[in-house]
């Protein structure tokens, strides 16, 4: 069974800039996969190459085993892409837009599916409205519908919830989760890390055109310090605990001011280890003023990974 997406040694330059710098990535069929990274990391470039909107300078990309250049017709039929930019054709209505998109993929008599997609995305009421008259959120839904008209097994969404209100976001994710449950492979990029954490089974983090982390979401979070003990103590931290101390990261420490006030962040592998920390503190004669066990989240993992070289 070929991978839904298989990328090998992919590179892309824009002038002197390396937008992608040797990316390897395999996404299995049926996955819900997150592609994260700061602005300019190369997420959209990678998606553009998959979609045939950009040409790689090196490496290969395949969709369900079909090379995106040599077998572009087959590859594009297997792929549905929701572009990052909110684009639309002001000449047409929602239904016309979807019928045309379906026709470009060689499908005739696809109206039943088009109506169904419109229904699921709450577009039915606007089917005959001109694209110009729609709100931003509605236009985004039409973009999603356009990516689905040809029933692609692999669906890529490039920041689909950017600038979309909370309610619509929620509805969208339910819809996308259903598509995933129906067997579609989903690849998404987003800025909302909680979303990625809640939805994605696996995550790749891109930084300056390179994959800097790739793992199951849960493992990725676990790999980065299973737990933290956040402490405020009176007295000196016993030497036995020095190795556990971590530089203040993300929301765990409220910045330098807190650090000065004696807030420490200690790493532990599990809850049982909290006890040995307490024991060591007692043995060292420290008084605990405040204590809290905190779990890292994806946001923090993200911040940590991006801070490294």
């Amino acid at each position: 069974m070929p991978d839904a997406i298989e990328i090998r040694g992919l590179s892309k330059r824009y002038g002197a800039l390396r937008a992608l710098d040797g990316v390897d990535l395999a996404i299995a069929q049926g996955e819900f996969f997150g592609l994260l990274g700061p602005n300019g990391a190369g997420k959209t470039t990678l998606i553009s190459i998959l979609a045939g909107l950009a040409r790689p300078d090196g490496g290969t990309a395949r969709v369900l085993g079909r090379d995106v250049l040599a077998e572009y017709r087959a590859a594009r039929r297997l792929l549905g892409v929701v572009p990052q930019e909110l684009v639309f054709d002001p000449f047409f209505t929602v239904r016309e837009t979807l019928r045309f998109q379906s026709g470009y993929f060689g499908l005739r008599g696809n109206d039943a599916w088009i109506e169904e997609v419109m229904h699921h995305l709450d577009l039915a009421g606007k089917a005959d409205a001109n694209m110009r008259s729609l709100s931003g959120g509605m236009k985004r839904r039409v973009l999603i519908a356009q990516a689905l008209v040809h029933r692609p097994p692999v669906i890529v969404l490039d920041e689909p919830t950017a600038g979309v209100d909370v309610e619509l976001r929620h509805g969208l994710w339910q819809f996308v989760q259903r598509l995933n449950a129906d067997g579609h492979t989903i690849v998404l990029t987003t800025h909302y890390l909680e979303e990625a954490e809640a939805l994605c089974g696996r995550i790749a983090m891109l930084k300056q055109g390179r994959v800097v982390a790739l793992d199951r979401t849960a493992d990725l979070i676990r790999r980065f310090h299973a737990l933290y003990v956040r402490l405020r103590i009176e007295g000196r931290l016993p030497d036995a605990l020095a190795a556990r101390r971590v530089p203040h990261a993300g929301r765990e420490a409220g910045g330098e001011a807190d650090a000065g006030a004696g807030v420490l962040l200690l790493q532990i592998q599990d809850y049982a280890e909290a006890e040995s920390v307490l024991a060591a503190l007692r043995a060292g004669g420290c008084t605990i003023l405040e204590m809290e066990i905190v779990q890292p989240d994806l946001e923090e993992v993200f911040v940590q990974i991006m801070k490294r070289r």
């Binding site: 979609a51 045939g52 909107l53 572009y72 017709r73 087959a74 594009r76 039929r77 892409v81 572009p83 930019e85 684009v87 639309f88 054709d89 002001p90 837009t97 045309f100 998109q101 470009y104 993929f105 060689g106 356009q146 040809h150």
Partner: peptide
């Protein structure tokens, strides 16, 4: 117009030769 507004992607994404 399609290039400037960006909706050219609608005809670049499909398998049209």
């Amino acid at each position: 117009q399609s290039k400037v507004t960006g909706n050219i992607v609608f005809v670049l994404l499909p398998p049209l030769s």
